[in-house]
């Protein structure tokens, strides 16, 4: 057994306990993953730093991934924890370039959860799985004491098959690539936050939660030279680009004027003092591919309802420091940093 007390790679003097920021998708979470989990589990699959692992079998390549869902409220405008748990894992498989095949679902239920709520979530899981053409092939159920869970937590793991020869991962990104984003940003984060904060806007902001496997399959069928795909969940576009740029040792420059954010989401972000570049999405991804293929890729993306607003937002260059910069609408460049933890609403 490793003596964690002595060898813990995150000095206790820094963070003697886990804080919420360690799950915020920012730098602190990155430290936790890099210094604790990567150090403990190191292997070539994890070294790829992708949304899932791709491994060889006798007959070809498979992808595997897992994700847990602790969203509150369980039902939010545009989705619920059930559909989210299917979309999230299906999307992680899609980002590996895989066609999703099977999912497992583990449920952690809190004593006292209304059976009707559980039934609604179960139906939502089933319906989302049908829509994504995956089957839920194994599962697990645990019940914890009242007060020890937020109603219900879900975990889904998934397996998918790769039907192409591409090596889709951050390290494949190279200078000359363009960055495409599949749609407007920040909807899921703001939809959930608006409900949690009791904020009311003129129109309700709906989560963008959606499966992306079909559109990714469409990109792959056209034999485009895709270098990397990444869904923009916690930490938003800014965090995803920072992670990819750091792994690929390249720089990414974004054009602020091209980053699509819907009016109501911008308004909500303004009210709370949040930057949509860091707000979570559940149905958006970025594509890195050579510039010459950008137009074809955009055409394919826009042909799918979930990617109607797909745009070219930036490009990859050789200078890795700082990893991500933004050409502002004012015409000057600034750094797009990775945040420490989650964004916090400001005072005034």
């Amino acid at each position: 057994m490793t003596d964690f007390g002595l060898a813990c790679p995150i000095p206790l003097s820094d963070y003697p306990t886990v804080t919420l920021a360690h799950g915020g998708g920012g730098r602190l979470m990155n430290h936790l993953i890099e210094r604790m989990f990567m150090a403990a589990f190191r292997n070539p699959h994890l070294d790829r730093r992708h949304d899932g692992a791709v491994f060889e079998t006798g007959g070809g390549r498979l992808a595997i991934t897992t994700d847990s869902y602790v969203v509150r409220p369980l039902f939010f405008p545009g989705g619920d924890i059930g559909s989210l748990a299917v979309h999230g894992t299906v999307n992680d498989l899609a980002m590996c370039g895989a066609r999703p095949l099977h999912l497992t679902v583990a449920l952690i239920l809190e004593e006292g959860l209304p059976m009707d709520t559980l039934w609604r979530v179960t139906q939502s899981l089933a319906e989302a799985a049908r829509a994504c053409e995956v089957s839920i092939v194994a599962g697990d159920t645990k019940v914890v004491d009242r007060g020890k869970g937020d109603g219900l937590y879900l975990n889904t793991s998934g397996i998918g098959i790769l039907e192409h020869a591409l090596d889709i991962r951050p390290a494949s990104v190279r200078p000359g690539d363009v960055v495409l984003v599949s749609g407007d940003l920040g909807r899921h984060g703001m939809a959930v936050m608006a409900v949690r904060a009791g904020l009311e806007f003129e129109s309700e902001i709906e989560s963008d939660s959606a499966p992306l496997s079909r559109v990714v399959q469409a990109l792959l069928r056209r034999n485009l030279e895709i270098h990397c795909l990444r869904d923009l969940t916690r930490g938003g576009l800014a965090s995803a680009l920072n992670e990819i740029a750091a792994t690929a040792r390249v720089g990414v420059t974004l054009d602020e004027a091209e980053v699509p954010v819907r009016e109501d989401v911008r308004g909500a972000c303004e009210v709370l003092g949040l930057d949509p570049l860091y707000v979570a999405n559940e149905g958006r991804f970025v594509v890195f591919l050579p510039e010459r293929e950008a137009e074809v890729a955009l055409e394919i993306l826009r042909a799918h309802e979930v990617c109607r607003e797909a745009r070219r937002v930036g490009f990859v260059h050789e200078d890795p420091q700082p990893p991500v910069t933004l050409l502002t609408t004012m015409g000057v460049h600034r750094v797009v940093d990775m945040l420490s933890g989650e964004q916090l609403p400001r005072i005034c």
């Binding site: 306990t17 920021a21 400001r346």
Partner: peptide, 19 residues
């Protein structure tokens, strides 16, 4: 307000107290 939680006190911040 969320902004205050990361501000260092003399030995820790409100996030640490929360955790």
């Amino acid at each position: 307000f969320g902004d205050m939680l990361r501000v260092p006190g003399s030995s820790r911040d409100l996030f640490a107290a929360k955790s």
